[in-house]
C-alpha cells in the first residue's frame, strides 16, 4: 500500500509543486496518473521511488520509507523512466547480470515478452532504436515481478502493434499483490488497462477514483451537437463530434472516456469534482 501524507515538494522555494498532498493507493490496481505537462507526475513517481525526498510530509510504501533506499525496498520496486538508461550490453547479458538483483525475476516471462515484441536480444542495447530499447526495458520491468511497478510514458516510442502487445503483456503480468502506476499523456493507448484514475492539478490530487465509481457518477457520450444534452457538464470537439460529460442518473456504471474526463476535470474542475464527491448525482 502506498501512503502519502501532507507531502510538500518544490524545486524552487518560490513555487510549491505539491502542497499538503495526501494519497492512498491499494495493491491490485492499475492506476493511470494523469496531469498536464509540469503537473508533477514524474516527480511524484520519483518521490515514491526515493529518487526525490519530500520537503515535508511522509511517504510510505508498505513499511518502507523510500528515501532510505533499503535494498529490500529496491528489490520490490521498478521504475521505468521515460528517458531510459541503457548499459552497453545486450539483452542476454542484461538478464544475466541485472536480473539477479530482483529475486522474483522470471526469465520465462522475459523471453515470452521479447518474443511478442520481436526484439533482437543479441545486438547491444545501445545499437538499437529507441523503440527497441524501450521494448527490452518493458519486458525486463514486467519480468522483475516487483510489487510496485511504475511506468512513465510507457507507450512513447512504441509502434502501433507493440502498443497492443504491451497492453496484453501488462494485463498478463498484473496480479492482486501488485500496484502498477502508468503515468501517461497517451490515455487512449492505455484506457483499457487503467482501473483507477489519478489526476494531478494545482499542486494536489484533483481526482482519485476508480473507473467504476466515475462511471457511476458521470456519463460519457458522443454527439453531433451539444444542444440536446440535459445537464451537460462539459464537452469538447473531437474529430468524431462532441465528447460530452453528463451526470449519470442511471444506476448502472457506464464506460469512462478518460481523455474527456481529463479535459473536463481541467476545464470545469468544480462541476466534475462536486459530482464525484457528492452522495448522489444531482441536477
Amino acid at each position: 500500500m502506498i501512503t502519502i501524507r501532507n507531502l510538500d515538494f518544490w524545486y524552487s522555494k518560490r513555487e510549491n509543486l505539491f502542497a499538503g498532498l495526501n494519497l492512498d493507493m491499494q495493491p491490485g490496481h492499475i492506476y493511470g496518473l494523469l496531469g498536464k505537462n509540469g503537473a508533477g507526475k514524474t516527480t511524484l513517481l520519483k518521490i515514491m521511488c526515493g529518487l526525490f525526498f519530500p520537503k515535508r510530509g511522509e511517504v510510505f510504501l508498505d513499511h518502507w520509507i523510500p528515501r532510505q533506499r533499503h535494498p529490500g525496498f529496491l528489490q520490490d520496486i521498478f521504475l521505468l523512466p521515460e528517458e531510459i538508461y541503457i548499459p552497453l550490453i545486450n539483452a542476454e547479458s542484461l538478464v544475466r547480470l541485472y536480473a539477479p538483483f530482483y529475486p522474483r525475476f522470471s526469465r520465462e516471462q522475459f523471453t515470452r515478452a521479447m518474443d511478442y515484441f520481436e526484439v533482437n536480444s543479441v545486438r547491444k542495447l545501445n545499437k538499437l532504436s529507441y523503440g527497441q530499447k524501450k521494448k527490452i526495458m518493458i519486458a525486463f520491468a514486467l519480468a522483475c515481478n516487483t510489487r510496485y511497478l511504475f511506468l512513465d510514458e510507457p507507450t512513447n516510442g512504441l509502434d502501433i502493434p507493440s502498443k497492443a502487445t504491451f497492453r496484453s503483456l501488462l494485463a498478463a503480468a498484473f496480479s492482486e499483490d501488485r500496484t502498477i502506476i502508468l503515468s501517461t499523456h497517451q490515455v487512449r493507448d492505455l484506457q483499457s488497462l487503467i482501473d483507477h484514475v489519478l489526476i494531478l492539478s494545482g499542486r494536489r490530487i484533483m481526482i482519485h477514483q476508480s473507473l467504476d465509481f466515475i462511471g457511476s457518477r458521470l456519463k460519457f457520450q458522443r454527439s453531433v451537437t451539444r444542444t440536446e444534452m440535459t445537464g451537460l457538464l462539459y464537452s469538447w470537439n473531437t474529430e468524431m463530434g462532441h465528447a460530452c460529460i453528463l451526470p449519470n442518473f442511471d444506476n448502472e456504471p457506464g464506460p469512462v472516456d478518460i481523455e474527456t474526463l481529463f479535459n473536463g476535470a481541467l476545464e470545469v474542475p468544480e462541476k466534475i469534482t462536486h459530482l464525484l464527491h457528492s452522495e448522489i448525482p444531482v441536477l
Binding site: 533499503h70 529496491l74 528517458e83
Partner: peptide
C-alpha cells in the same frame, strides 16, 4: 548524471555496496 542516476540509485543494493 541525469539519465544514469535513476538506475544507479534504484539498483537493489545497499549504499555501502
Amino acid at each position: 548524471d541525469f539519465g544514469n542516476a535513476s538506475s544507479t540509485l534504484m539498483l537493489p543494493a545497499s549504499l555501502t555496496e
